[in-house]
Amino acid sequence: MTSRFIPKRPLFGQEARLGLYLTAPVILIMGVLVILPLILTVVESFYRVEQMKQGIPFIGFKNYANLMLDKDVLKSWNNTFIYVVIAVAIETLGGLGAALVLNKVKIGRRWLLAVVVLPWCLPPVVNAIIWLWIYNPSYGLLNALLRSVGLISESHVWFNDRFTGLLLVAVVHAWRMLPLTAIILLAALQSIPANLYEAARLDGASAWRQFWLITLPLISGGLAISLSQSTVFAFNLFDEAWILNGSSIGTRSLMVQVYMSAFQNMKFSLGMALSIMAMIASLIVSAIYVLRVYKETRFD
């Protein structure tokens, strides 16, 4: 009887409604274009989804089992692991060196930073084309430079050797991604209080000891972030391998393999299963770094 006179309360308060309105585009776009496809990828990796075949029968782990036995797939795993090791090593050591230099520079640091971040800003495809010409077997800069300093006597066809090919692709990737590591580590370096170094100098610690005892432990957080970033990006290496050496098995990365399975051979579900395995692997590896760096450098 009385309930009729109670005004109907809206489901959410005014603030909550505004919040939902403002984030609705985010939820809609991410939901339809990322979350839904992600779920579909997981589900359909257990089915056989192929352009050329009728029907989508449930096949359980068969896609995954096929991937474990496929020679090309195994080789592309192998290639990707080599890419990760080389790229992460170059990016971390080079990025640390660059950050130390940037931190020392007093005059014109802004412009030096601009120069250093430049490779990261360029389209990866253009980077790869620039390096493709440098690596050119007949007229490339790399051969010319090595010949002029006498390191090699005749020109090399670099991509004839599998490991050299992997190294050269990884160098191009590292050239692009190194600035990110440098910037992350520079931010970490700038947060170290200067009086720590003064105290160490008063105690007579050498520059080398200062680096090991002060700098490295205090930038370990930044190192963990940059290591996991480098790893995830190197796992997803595609553009450089594709432009420099196409689908050649010697330098084929996992993502190239996924692209070929899905969009060239039209075996969608096989590609999906492989992309899930790659994602899980890259997340596990980067999680290991974060945990290890965190454990080893924590002071109690």
Binding site: L33, L36, L38, E44, V232, M255, G271, M272, S275, M279
Partner: peptide, 17 residues
């Protein structure tokens, strides 16, 4: 969290969508 999801993991179903 989707920053950790590589483009290819979503691209195949996205293509069909």
């Amino acid at each position: 969290g989707t920053l950790g999801v590589p483009a290819y993991t979503v691209m195949i179903p996205l293509y069909r969508i």
